[in-house]
Design a protein around this nucleic acid. Sequence first.
DNA 1: CACGTTTAAGTTGTGCACAATTGAACTGCG
DNA 2: CGCAGTTCAATTGTGCACAACTTAAACGTG
Lengths: 156, 156
Amino acid sequence: MPEPLDDKLCFALYAASRAVTQLQRPMLDELGLTYPQYLVMVVLWEKRSLPVKDLAAALQLDYGTVSPLLKRLEAAGLLRRERRADDERSVLVALTDGGAALRARAEDVPGAVLCAMDLDDDEYHALLRAVQKLTESVSAPGAASRGRTPAAAATP
Amino acid sequence: MPEPLDDKLCFALYAASRAVTQLQRPMLDELGLTYPQYLVMVVLWEKRSLPVKDLAAALQLDYGTVSPLLKRLEAAGLLRRERRADDERSVLVALTDGGAALRARAEDVPGAVLCAMDLDDDEYHALLRAVQKLTESVSAPGAASRGRTPAAAATP
DNA sequence: CACGTTTAAGTTGTGCACAATTGAACTGCG
DNA sequence: CGCAGTTCAATTGTGCACAACTTAAACGTG
């Protein structure tokens, strides 16, 4: 029997996102990280240091989510936050030695995830691109009023 | 410059899921529903009535999420919860007239979403299937220890 | 029948997500 | 300079998401 949500891509994405997070949870638990915290660390391992604004942009999250998240990571000793001298509005997030050290313990997480996804390289990249394109279509300003409806939009 | 998360499908799904939810928020706001609440209503509009267990299974959520969510929908007058007479453990969730009436006001939500996604029918179904397959691969028990690593699993 | 086990649902506590608000620091322009 | 307007970040409040725990009903086996 067909279930009511089976044909909904929006639900499929929602379920997939949670399933992938669930998959990583046991591994991240050993590092003392949640999934969003892990994403912050992934960015920091590459960048060493960047403003909160850029970090929030990279994660596509707002300050209301990122601020307390960074506070917890700072309390765990994985990063530091310091106001910039040249612009006191901006706060720079910087990796600590403890944060850098965690990288080695996390290095096999992506492999395990890839493995569990059971996709070959082509499938992986095709799906990645399709999902990224979807995000862009849907995030574009006025997305809800465009698409296959070329009727006059409410932009006088 | 390549961003650290750009090659991560897990992040792409997480971002896409949130972007699609954001897209629907203004429409659902007018109905007084959050996105998970809307999903519950979608199921109820099809099924009229079902146990909490089945609803949680359909949404792939646990009781800890679903119980308070149903409480709020009941307070809003959209559904009723009643213990079954033949099995006092089970609670049946049933659509009220108010809940049924909301269906008409929500009917153009899926169309608007589809439209904003800017996908043709084939792309939509291909992506839907790919995402569903991924969820299944990743949700399968022991997913993290299988895949392209046929090494002995820790199942003595 | 009694007793341990399983099952359905709810509760508690932590941590996201996000809207709305606040506040401080920078900017632009007359 | 003065000050409206913008920008960066944090706070507050609501509602998920989920682990861990609790409660109560049904079941199974001796």
